[in-house]
Amino acid sequence: MSEQPSLEDELQKTAEMFVSALRNRSVRIVFAESCTAGLLAATLSKIPGVSSSLCGSFVTYRNDSKSSWLGVSDEDLAAPEVGPVSETVARQMAQGALYKTPEADLAVSVTGHLGPDAPSQWDGIAFSGIATRSADSTSVTKFELRSQPEAGLSLRQTRQFDAALQVMRNALTHNSLCPGQAADC
């Protein structure tokens, strides 16, 4: 009887395919991670030769870091109708990371409440932003991991990583993240 691959093994395999797509398109990426606490960059960093594609990661777990490192608006972070877990902040995080990393072609941000002490209305909610230099645009996707409140923070971070990676792979597949007018994109 063969053993099922672990979630971490599956994510590593997906990450390897993503890095291969980055390399094939000569795209360099930077992350701005909050609720995933560096998991995206740490996972990609296990892939040999990834330095040709991975510029780094800003781990901005706290609001002060989001503001001072990435230029996220203090007003937006403090506003009850916006706050750190929002489309607005995910967009600003991705744009700030791209601005601070001139060698990157795209930036991906992740911000969310993954528990265990998240407000009930926000528990399991996360946003991922993708900013591209070539298209000068930023898109944001909202994720809901509400069905797994018992999963714990580590598993929820892993599931958020998987969700963000799927969005990034989809964007690469649909050719929206290609720098300039690359012929192979």
Rank of each mutant, 00 (worst) to 15 (best):
S2F: 12
L7R: 10
D9H: 12
D9F: 03
D9E: 13
Q12G: 09
T14P: 11
A15Y: 05
A15I: 09
F18K: 02
S20F: 01
A21M: 05
R25V: 02
V27P: 04
I29K: 00
G38A: 02
A41K: 06
L44N: 13
I47H: 04
P48L: 13
P48Q: 10
G49F: 00
G49M: 01
V50G: 04
V50K: 03
S51K: 06
C55F: 07
G56P: 14
F58W: 06
S65A: 15
S65T: 15
S65F: 11
S67R: 12
S68Y: 03
S68C: 07
L70H: 08
S73I: 10
D76S: 13
A79R: 12
A79F: 15
G83H: 03
V85F: 05
S86P: 00
M93Y: 01
A94H: 08
Y99L: 11
D105F: 06
A107M: 01
A107R: 03
T111P: 02
S120R: 14
S120M: 15
S120Y: 05
G124A: 09
A126E: 01
F127D: 02
G129R: 02
I130P: 00
A131N: 07
T132S: 11
S139G: 09
V140F: 00
K142L: 04
E144I: 02
L145I: 03
L145S: 08
R146T: 14
R146S: 15
S147E: 14
Q148W: 11
P149W: 04
E150I: 09
A151I: 02
G152N: 13
G152W: 06
G152A: 11
S154P: 04
R156Y: 12
D162W: 15
A163F: 03
Q166F: 10
N170R: 06
N170W: 01
A171W: 06
H174N: 14
H174Y: 08
H174Q: 15
H174E: 07
N175Q: 06
S176T: 06
C178D: 03
A182W: 01
A183I: 05
